[in-house]
Amino acid sequence: MDFKLIFLCIAGFIGAFVDSVAGGGGLVTIPAYLLAGVPPHFTLGTNKFAATMGSFISTAGYARSSKVNFRLMRAAVPMTALGAVLGVYSVLRIPQDFLYPLVSVAILVVGLYTFFKKDLGKVNAFTVITKKKVIFVALVGFALGFYDGFFGPGTGSFLIFIFIRFLKFDFTNASGNAKLINFTSNFTSLIAFAINGKIDYLIGVPIALFMVLGSIVGTRLAIKNGSKFIKPIFLIMSFVVFFKLLYDMFLK
């Protein structure tokens, strides 16, 4: 195993760990691929391959601990897949530069609101499943699936915040349900990259193994320690996404 692959495997572990807890793992792995000299299209495709493996394990871990409400999410999964396909299709035709200021402001608001709302996400106050809630989650899945396929940064943060703010989940349950949506959009995008031959499996497979390990560790710690562990990482990743977007807008 050469130094480049060792570096990417370590970055994959850290990225998957962070992503399984609060989202934002791509902020670790994407720069690592580019720094290692992987071409941009193969960076996106290979990262999506490895990240999808880690995302699947993380989703399964939350599901085994009953932190994923499949009845609530039954319509969200296909709607997320549809949104992701349309997002990937659209990004090939529409420049995404106009999204930087909009998403920067949105992610900053999410981070500040979460920081100052001290009791946000501490208690799981989600009650009964209603038709309105199922429809709401399906629409959220479609919108964030489209966003993830089209642009991506902050998808996990937005999902967690929406589930806490509007469905009254705590951080642990919000992360579990958000991870199912994330996995769906990741898997859908992965198929598109695979069809177009943009995945380097020689490095993708070993990195995926380390991302699976990172996902296992992160998910177990999140489930064991709950909101007190997830919220600080969620806040950190929200502000990291914000500053990364600012950097891309003004300095890149």
Results as ranks from 00 to 15, higher is better:
Phe3Ile: 14
Ile6Gly: 01
Ile10Ser: 08
Ala11Trp: 00
Phe13Glu: 13
Val18Tyr: 07
Val18Asp: 03
Ser20His: 11
Val21Met: 07
Ala22Thr: 08
Gly23Ser: 08
Gly24Ser: 02
Gly25Glu: 10
Gly26Arg: 14
Leu27Thr: 14
Leu27Met: 15
Pro31His: 13
Leu35Arg: 02
Ala36Ser: 13
Val38Trp: 04
Thr43Gln: 09
Thr46Asn: 06
Asn47Met: 13
Phe49His: 04
Phe49Ile: 03
Met53Arg: 00
Met53Glu: 01
Met53Pro: 00
Ser55Pro: 10
Phe56Cys: 12
Phe56Ile: 13
Ser58His: 12
Thr59Asp: 06
Thr59His: 11
Thr59Ala: 14
Tyr62Cys: 04
Tyr62Asp: 06
Ala63Thr: 15
Ser66Phe: 13
Lys67Arg: 14
Lys67Pro: 00
Asn69Lys: 07
Phe70Pro: 04
Leu72Gln: 10
Leu72Arg: 09
Leu72Val: 08
Arg74Ile: 10
Ala75Glu: 09
Ala75Cys: 09
Ala76His: 02
Pro78Arg: 08
Met79Cys: 13
Ala81Val: 12
Gly83Gln: 10
Leu86Asp: 09
Val88Glu: 11
Val91Asp: 01
Leu92Arg: 15
Ile94His: 09
Leu102Glu: 00
Val103Thr: 03
Ser104Ala: 14
Ser104Lys: 01
Ile107Phe: 00
Leu108Ser: 06
Val109Phe: 15
Gly111Tyr: 13
Gly111Glu: 08
Leu112Met: 13
Phe115Tyr: 11
Phe116Trp: 13
Lys118Ser: 12
Lys118His: 14
Asp119Trp: 05
Gly121Val: 07
Gly121Asn: 05
Asn124Thr: 10
Ala125Asp: 15
Phe126Ile: 09
Val128Lys: 15
Ile135Tyr: 10
Val137Pro: 01
Ala138Thr: 11
Val140Gly: 05
Phe142Trp: 06
Phe142Tyr: 04
Leu144Met: 15
Phe146Trp: 09
Tyr147Phe: 15
Asp148Glu: 13
Phe150Asn: 10
Phe151Ala: 08
Gly152Pro: 11
Gly154Ala: 08
Gly154Ile: 02
Thr155Asn: 04
Thr155Lys: 05
Thr155His: 06
Thr155Ala: 10
Ser157Arg: 01
Phe158Lys: 06
Phe161Asp: 01
Ile162Trp: 07
Phe163Met: 15
Phe163Arg: 01
Ile164Lys: 05
Arg165Trp: 03
Arg165Asp: 03
Leu167Ala: 07
Lys168Pro: 00
Phe171Ile: 02
Phe171Asn: 03
Asn173Leu: 02
Ser175Phe: 05
Ala178Cys: 11
Asn182Ser: 12
Ser185Glu: 04
Asn186Ile: 08
Thr188Ala: 11
Thr188Gln: 08
Ala194Asn: 03
Ile199Asp: 12
Ile199Phe: 08
Ile199Asn: 08
Tyr201Val: 10
Ile203Glu: 07
Ile207Tyr: 05
Ala208Asp: 06
Leu209Pro: 02
Gly214His: 06
Ile216Leu: 12
Thr219Cys: 10
Gly226Ser: 06
Lys228Trp: 01
Lys228Gly: 02
Phe229Ile: 11
Ser238Pro: 02
Ser238Lys: 00
Ser238Tyr: 00
Phe239Glu: 06
Phe242Arg: 04
Phe242Cys: 12
Phe243Ala: 11
Lys244Ala: 14
Leu245Pro: 09
